[in-house]
């Protein structure tokens, strides 16, 4: 059993003046090294939950323990943010400076890291996200996907144990989306960084280790992606989508084709159908 790195217990959050809870009694553990996807409609509370994970918001009820710290004061929040980085939705609104490498250095400068160390960690982080050749470029000349990779590098340079991606692909084109997702996946596998991937794209959620579906501030479904998506009707009713192949499998089963329960990809479907023929 791996260590639990995020422990959310009965977490509630209510925005000032709101009548309902944005996050409603959520209990969730994330294991170190896991790639967890949180899927939900706009307004399902998934982004608010993300902000509770790195202490940008503090819960109004329950507790969130991240990397052993339950933030109670400003210094704790600071510690939590050091170990839990966050990449936001809008690529334009999270880059602080006019030069790519300076932006990567921003977090480390805030931590008071010595200059030589900042230099080497920034170079390493830019290399890791494949943006070394753009170190001196101006962010305004980059594509959306490239900007998001710079944002990842800025977080990576701080050597976090967890990175939360809060709908980081929502504003990108298919190529950028694929790039940023692949990058997160690689950081998870190669560097062992725990990833919390928040999205409303089911294609991405389908590739996670574990999937949590949020609705109305609560956890509606949880489990391995294929077992969650296998509940096709429930997922569609929650205003979400299931992979096209799962829809097809659902249709075929209704017409009496005996397919296994957990078919999700083109490849799996092709193999299963060839055996039936």
């Amino acid at each position: 059993m791996k260590n639990t790195i995020i422990e959310a217990r009965d977490v509630c959050f209510k925005y000032e003046g709101a009548s309902t809870l944005a996050v409603d009694h959520v209990t969730l553990d994330v294991a170190e090294g896991e790639f967890l996807a949180i899927l939900g409609r706009n307004g399902s509370g998934k982004s608010t939950f993300a902000k509770l994970l790195n202490a940008l918001q503090l819960p109004t009820g329950g507790s969130v323990k991240v990397n052993g710290i339950t933030p109670a004061n400003e210094d704790d929040c600071y510690e939590v943010r050091k170990s839990c980085g966050m990449v936001f939705q809008n690529p334009d609104n999270q880059i602080v400076t006019t030069i790519v490498e300076e932006d990567c250095a921003f977090g480390l400068e805030n931590l008071g890291t010595p200059p030589q160390e900042i230099r080497s960690r920034v170079d390493e982080a830019l290399h890791s996200v494949g943006m070394s050749e753009f170190a001196q470029a101006s962010p305004s000349m980059l594509s959306g996907g490239q900007k998001q990779r710079v944002a990842v590098a800025g977080v990576l340079a701080m050597r976090p144990r967890i990175i939360v991606f809060d709908e980081s692909t929502a504003m990108l084109d298919p190529i950028g989306r694929r790039d940023v997702f692949a990058l997160a996946r690689r950081l998870n596998v190669e560097e062992g960084i725990t990833i919390v991937w928040i999205t409303h794209f089911m294609e991405e959620a389908a590739m996670a280790d574990r999937l949590v579906v949020m609705d109305g501030g609560r956890i509606a479904l949880e489990g391995e992606p294929r077992s969650v998506f296998a509940q096709t009707d429930r997922v569609l009713k929650l205003g979400l989508d299931v992979p096209e192949i799962m829809k097809l499998a659902h249709m075929l089963r209704e017409r009496g084709v005996a397919l296994p329960d957990d078919i999700m990809t083109v490849n799996e479907m092709a193999v299963a159908l060839c055996q039936l023929k």
Partner: peptide, 8 residues
């Protein structure tokens, strides 16, 4: 928010 998240 993004600056806060990076410990500014």
């Amino acid at each position: 928010l993004a600056m806060d998240a990076r410990c500014y």
